[in-house]
Design a protein around this nucleic acid. Structure first.
Lengths: 151, 151
DNA sequence: ATTGATAATGAAAACCATTTTCAATAAGGT
DNA sequence: ACCTTATTGAAAATGGTTTTCATTATCAAT
């Protein structure tokens, strides 16, 4: 399996090396369905790979992000969170519901038909009007989750 | 004018004091139409009010944010950016187009009818399904601006 | 106006996620 | 196996933001 990953081929195609650390990090990301911080990944890794440093985790995440393999989110609770992109992960297209109190992040994939219609029009219009090449969008809703109670 | 601000009344109503620093900071924010970082505000202030420290700027922005007077954005170019909320500022409802290369932020208010329709349905649906009280949404598009050239 | 309780402030230090440095190590083409 | 060079870990540096603490300012009550 060492050379069979889609993401691995992508990296190697760009001249990067396929290392044990990089494999372990992507492996962690592909076996979780939560959003992990660099530190989360570092600790998750530490049991099986105590020799992979936090620095490497940061560097790898940066590399993966630049190559479109992971997405980085800064929801504002201190640390950035990461997840595999749709093309390389196993999660369907989704957006986020973030609790302002406890920081819980809920993924949702509902209402995507409505979103698609809205995005299609908007992206096209914005791109043309502002001469902007749009690569990505971010849609998030902030509020209070059930557990934290409404206010 | 010292006691005539909507935002000032809001703060006083919550037991907070109306200070020179807070007035100066809101004043700066209400006379700019760009998104300012705490440091930006600190320097803009420094000419007329050299006695207001960066610490106070941070503390004031936090207070204003908690009271719904400013919005804080973390677009990922290091420093957080702030602007008055729709209710207290002079800018119409808008969203952001962020350049991945140079960090330029373009406000846009186009296609709001489409957005409204989409949001209305989505927020209602999400709120019900996930028992989430939605207070805010954030819609941003990331890409490359005209100046930075497409890729 | 003055006073008094206490909220707000500035300066400096602390915090803490993330980056950089640098010498040692490992990947992978030959 | 060898060699070039990308990658790594540890430790130090960075830099935005927060905390500490003694001082100052706000404003309700007088």
């Amino acid at each position: 399996m060492r050379h069979g990953h889609k993401w691995g081929n992508k990296l190697r195609g760009c001249g990067f090396r396929l290392t044990i650390g990089r494999e372990a990090i992507v492996d962690i990301l592909s076996h979780t369905n939560s959003h992990m911080s660099a530190e989360d990944i570092f600790f998750a890794l530490h049991a099986d790979s105590p020799n992979i440093g936090l620095t490497t985790v940061y560097r790898t995440l940066e590399l993966l992000e630049k190559n479109g393999i992971v997405s980085k989110y800064e929801f504002g609770h201190g640390r950035a969170k990461f997840e595999l992109t749709e093309a390389y992960g196993n999660k369907p297209h989704h957006h986020h519901l973030i609790c302002r109190k406890c920081g819980t992040i809920i993924d949702y994939s509902d209402f995507m038909e409505d979103e698609l219609a809205y995005l299609k029009k908007t992206e096209a219009g914005l791109g043309k009007k502002y001469k902007f090449t749009i690569h990505q969008h971010s849609i998030s809703f902030f509020g209070i989750c059930e557990k934290c109670g409404a206010s």
